[in-house]
Design a protein around this nucleic acid. Sequence first.
RNA 1: GUGCCUGUAGUUCAAUGGUAGAACGCAGCUCUGUGGCAGCUGUCACGUGGGUCCGAUUCCCAUCAGGCACCCCA
Length: 455
Amino acid sequence: MNNNPSKVTPRILSGFMELLPADQMLFNGMLGVIQKSYERFGFIPLDTPVIELAEVLLAKAGGETEKQIYRFTKGDSDLALRFDLTVPLARYVAQHYPDLAFPFRRYHIGKVFRGERPQRGRFREFYQCDIDIIGDGALSLLNDAEIPSVIYATFTALGFSRFTIKINNRKILNGFFESLGLASQAADILRSVDRLEKAGQEAVQQELAGLGAPPNAAREVLAFIGLTGDTAAILSQLKQMQISNGTFHTGVDELEKVISYVSALGVPGQNYAIDLTIARGLDYYTGTVYETVLNDYPGIGSVCSGGRYDDLAGYYTNKQLPGVGISIGLTRLFYQLREAGIITPKSATPAIVLVIPQTSDLRVPLQAATELREGGIPTAVYFDDAKLKKKVTYASRLGIPFIIVIGDDEVAGGYVSLKDMSTGQTSNVSTKEAISLIRAKESANNGSSTDPVSA
RNA sequence: GUGCCUGUAGUUCAAUGGUAGAACGCAGCUCUGUGGCAGCUGUCACGUGGGUCCGAUUCCCAUCAGGCACCCCA
């Protein structure tokens, strides 16, 4: 690959994503939409170090985490890269507890690292966009209901309309398993149930048998999670079930409340549903759980998931800090949308206009550029010596929608030559007129393309 | 971490036991103040190491890299 032995081959590690300018613009657009949406709900921004003491990050330890974490030493320090944003949040809240106002609503958009085998859409470094609401001692169930409304607003802002927020409650599943005498295998069963769609009914049935579930219990499990209908129908079926288990009924109660409030918060009925099969692999969820899928692209899987947990920071503090939150895996989401052609890059630069000086005295072109920028128009200037054709091609390649050529004629005449790259029309106008012309055209375009996913 | 598949220009792909072509891209020209089209010219490759062979990009082994499935997850 590299003929020149004196040069190092430029390359990056597999599993790390790096984008070309047009894609980076698209990615940043999505990230900005998500951030704006989170802030609209009053979530507070948070940024924490990418590197933490291994002791802190691994306080909880746990098979997969331990295996996947990037860990290294620097001098005497045992360090690690964060593998999610929840553990740093727990540390942060425990550490700054006295200075925070609860419920603490924070969002955090940042990179996390996992040393997994990379695969399509699975990266070793990726962005998560998290929101969490942390209570001090207790946290109203209403927060569980607000989360889907944030998801709804965010995915709508991203340009999607056909998506479903699937909602379930762990207590229902746990209580149900307890009533079948399968409580000790609950975690494994949940995991198996979570794979229902992927692995198929038969495989799950066999797995359940392998876990020691008697055939009738396995059948009951499958029948249970197979309950169908709209939210009202599922809820009434759940309530009619003859199960004497407190946890189960608490779960049904919670789910019913959450569902009713989700509706009250204005999430349309077609955008959420009860799905008793979603369980989430993570073991720290204790109540409501969420998973969001794009109806037209089920293959992409969950694009946003999370849930309720009772004890966020038990490894760092004695305070009982319950919370609820979700995470959008932005890197994966972006990658898969891009792969599927659902989103396509538009421009490779934020510049709206390229000023092209065609004169040796740059003062007038530079003044014009400054005026454009003061007029709120992102402006780049082509400083280097080249033929006009090359400069125009440059604007074309980058997708810059306007160019302004300023040569000796323009300087002498006190005007600029404005060209609309999409129509090819040029006109001689004053800089002020150019600004309003560009603004008019841009706002007309933006009407339909504020979201990066207008497809 | 386990299993399977694949490594040829910047990219996507060909061909061949006698050292390789195309398309797109990129640079330039046709075209000295205007991009997209067209024509021409140029640019760039057999992942690495070993083995078999007169000779290996081709066959074999190892290694590295990439992809896929499992596991797990965003």
